[in-house]
């Protein structure tokens, strides 16, 4: 074999062989709109939801929770409508996951009230004695850092102005700190007193969880 005595030719040929499958199955689909369709019914994350998503990533929640409901009978029964490609147009990165140590979360939004999540995040074992989920009560002790929120949404191309981002943050803060907030009691229980009137990391991650699948559910009710 001639090429086994020509390392550079060998390397170029290897690269070519490697790039064929890569090009057909990965690079070309990047430029096909059908790979990741965009639909008007799916809205980008608000800055608070996006901050929550970043906390979800930071804590590696994707190591145990998937975010894709497969089109299988028992899966739809357990979680709800199967996942559609349009839903992920604003997901950078995707968070589909690869192992379900915990349940799928793609349809978790609106399934439980915020208070359920505050209690569950604080101590999963207080609600499900045998759960192996780590407790995340400490998220409520961290003030939410929103200093990069605008930069983040603009990198992701969500189309919010700096003012939009400020409004989203202050609106969400008003919502969860108001006396009329339905989950106020539980929130106050898990949040230290000095942060009762501030946004915490716990607030943000719950805002994110409540967004998951909500657009699809809205679409279903419209139908």
């Amino acid at each position: 074999m001639g090429i086994t005595s020509k390392p550079v030719v060998f390397a170029v040929l290897s690269a070519a062989v490697i790039l064929i499958g890569s090009t057909v199955t990965v690079f070309i689909p990047l430029f096909m709109p059908s790979t990741q369709p965009v639909s008007a019914y799916v809205k980008p994350y608000t800055s608070v939801e996006l901050e929550g998503r970043d906390i979800y990533m930071r804590e590696g929640c994707n190591n145990c929770h998937t975010q894709t409901v497969r089109p299988l009978r028992t899966e739809v029964l357990r979680y709800g409508e199967y996942s559609k490609p349009e839903e992920f147009a604003y997901d950078r990165p995707f968070l589909w996951g690869s192992r379900r140590t915990g349940p799928d979360l793609n349809r978790i939004g609106g399934k439980y009230p915020d208070s359920w999540h505050y209690r569950h995040m604080q101590s999963p074992q207080s609600m499900f004695e045998k759960s192996n989920m780590p407790p995340y009560g400490w998220l409520a002790k961290n003030r939410l850092d929103t200093s990069n929120s605008y930069k983040k949404t603009s990198i992701l191309g969500y189309g919010f102005s700096e003012q939009d981002v400020q409004v989203q943050i202050s609106q969400y803060r008003s919502k969860v700190t108001a006396d009329t907030y339905l989950s106020k009691e539980t929130r106050d229980l898990v949040t230290p007193a000095e942060l009762h009137h501030e946004l915490t990391e716990m607030d943000a991650i719950i805002a994110y969880l409540q967004k998951l699948g909500r657009d699809v559910k809205n679409l279903e009710t419209k139908k």
């Binding site: 199955t25 990965v26 689909p29 990047l30 790979t35 990741q36 490609p85 839903e87 992920f88 147009a89 604003y90 997901d91 950078r92 990165p93 995707f94 589909w96 983040k152 990198i155 992701l156």
Partner: peptide, 11 residues
Amino acid sequence: YTVYAGANDAN
């Protein structure tokens, strides 16, 4: 943040 979105990022 990755430059790829959703299904493309997954792929």
